Simulated scan of single mutants.
Amino acid sequence: MRILQIAPVIGPGTGVGAVAHHLEQEWCAAGHQVGRFTMDDARGSWLPEPGPGMRGKLALMARVVWFSTVGSLLARRELRRHPDVVALCHNDVLAGDVYVNHGILQAAMRSRGSYGLRMLRNPMHLFVAARDTLRYRSAIHQAVVNLVDEEDSALRATYPRLRPRTVTIGNGVDVGRYRPPTTSERTAARRRLGLTDDDVALLFVGHEFERKGLPAVMHALALLPARFRLIVVGGTPDMVQDAGRAADRLGLSDRVILLGQVPDPREAFHASDVFTFPSAYESYGLVVLEALACGVPVVATPVGCVPEVLHDGIDGYMTSADPGALARAVRDLAGLDRSALATAARAVAEEHSWHEVSQSYLRLFESLHHPGSTGPTTSINPAPLRTKGETA
């Protein structure tokens, strides 16, 4: 089968781009030809990378608008050259046989309150809402993949005139890369972060501190004994500074370890005892599976994949974002057998390997109708696809 994935960036550790990366690896290993359409192919490599402050927000807006408009035109032209290819779109572009719903903007804004104000004060929100209204009400895509059933329901509620058919296929986790640490790995990781044997290390990973609940985690930490400490991974430099000031106000400056963005979060997982994730909204929440794969029990709100993977008292707890509730759940987990929790967490993660996910996508692709070819896997003198490592 010939598959083309569409995303601004494709690679490990890049959020949505990591999903495309893992699918690419699985499909290539199975003998399929997998190509890429990224920002480079959309001739947007000249655009600045997003960063902190207003300049960073403007850079992000420019990239989203460019990939949604110019990227859509060029992707459609590319697909006309490859009528036999099955195209899977992950971000922005209005093209492709299948679109993966990695999040509904309106649902995310409503989950945080002040919906109208949040939409109106950010022009990019209005642009994305208009773009996706066109996406879901038209025949651009044959199918939409939702990551959990709850997201399928949210999509239909947000877009009552939804035209493509929908299916649910969850994300996977790289259970080879994300694994429980050895005793020496855990000891070394904790030593590098300044943790003692008696410390109970909470972990938060995310680039949107407010939506994903970092303020609630900090307030919960203030309710816990001094031996409970918090590791925070992610965030822009200005967000990290704000979080540091918040920790100071709560009297937690010596109990909160702010790492910022790191190229590899595994050491933080290996050093931790509990992963905290009181997010207001998630289309899936892959980081939850990554924590479980590392043997770290999770305390999280029931969003995204959480209701499907967490079992109270076995591999974590589902709770509200109320700091008191979070503190109670963390304290309860700290009193349970850590080895049993780690074993149960790992077992759940192993049920969500990328191999199984990639096979579900292939079954979906086989069901698609491809005019102009005798089937999604057949081609006569096909034009070459750009694959990993090739320039646009």
Rank of each mutant, 00 (worst) to 15 (best):
P12W: 14
T14D: 01
G17Q: 10
G17N: 06
V19F: 07
Q33W: 05
G35I: 11
D41P: 03
R43L: 08
P50C: 02
R63C: 01
W66P: 02
V70T: 07
V86E: 02
A87W: 02
H90T: 11
V93S: 01
V98P: 07
V98R: 03
Y99L: 12
H102C: 13
H102I: 04
Q106C: 06
A107W: 10
H125E: 04
R137W: 12
I140Y: 15
A143Q: 10
V145H: 05
L147K: 13
E150F: 10
D152L: 07
R156N: 07
P181Y: 11
T182M: 09
A189Q: 12
T196Q: 01
D198Y: 07
L224C: 02
T236H: 01
T236W: 04
Q241C: 12
A247W: 15
R249V: 14
L250Y: 08
S253R: 04
L259D: 12
Q261Y: 13
P265V: 03
A268P: 14
F269Q: 08
F275R: 05
P278H: 00
S279T: 02
A280I: 02
C294A: 04
V303M: 15
V309K: 00
G313F: 12
M318Q: 08
T319S: 01
G324Q: 10
D332I: 04
A344C: 00
R346L: 00
S353Q: 09
Y361K: 08
R363E: 15
P371E: 03
T377S: 09
P382Y: 12
P382W: 11
P384C: 11
K388P: 01
G389S: 01
A392P: 14
